[in-house]
Computed example of a mutant assay.
Amino acid sequence: MKVSVAFANEHAQVWRTYDVAEGTTVEDVLNQSGLISDFGLDVKKQKVGIFGKFTKLTAPVSEGDRIEIYDPITRVLDEDDDDDDD
């Protein structure tokens, strides 16, 4: 069955498709994808999902699933960026 893996950060956007066997887990696909080593990802700490819904690494994948690796979102506030309505 075909599944895909998507990952994006400030340096790259990747979407790859793979043929996997029935019973393959999210973690199996991520290991097969090479994205973990290519981008130095730690999927034990980062969130992953299927079509925008968080999932566990042990979840089985289904035909056509798009597995997403979510990069942490950080925001640095400027001094002028506050909640006051001055």
Rank of each mutant, 00 (worst) to 15 (best):
V3R: 00
V3S: 06
S4I: 01
S4L: 00
V5T: 02
V5F: 03
A6P: 01
A6V: 04
A6R: 02
F7D: 03
N9R: 05
A12C: 10
Q13I: 11
V14K: 13
V14L: 08
W15P: 00
W15Q: 08
R16H: 10
R16L: 15
R16M: 08
T17E: 13
T17K: 14
T17M: 06
T17H: 07
D19M: 05
D19P: 01
A21H: 12
A21L: 10
E22A: 12
G23D: 07
G23T: 01
T25F: 07
E27V: 08
D28Q: 09
V29E: 06
V29Q: 00
N31S: 12
N31E: 11
N31M: 09
Q32G: 03
Q32I: 07
G34M: 03
I36G: 03
I36H: 01
S37L: 08
S37F: 04
S37C: 02
D38G: 02
F39V: 03
G40T: 00
L41I: 06
D42K: 08
V43T: 13
V43W: 00
V43H: 01
V43A: 04
K45Q: 15
K45E: 15
K45Y: 03
Q46N: 14
Q46H: 11
Q46R: 12
Q46Y: 09
K47W: 05
K47Y: 04
G49R: 02
I50C: 08
I50D: 11
F51H: 15
K53A: 15
T55M: 00
K56V: 05
P60L: 10
V61W: 06
D65E: 06
R66L: 05
I67F: 09
I67G: 09
I67A: 12
I69G: 05
Y70H: 11
T74M: 07
V76M: 10
V76Q: 10
D78S: 14
D81E: 15
D81M: 09
D82P: 01
D85N: 11
D85I: 08
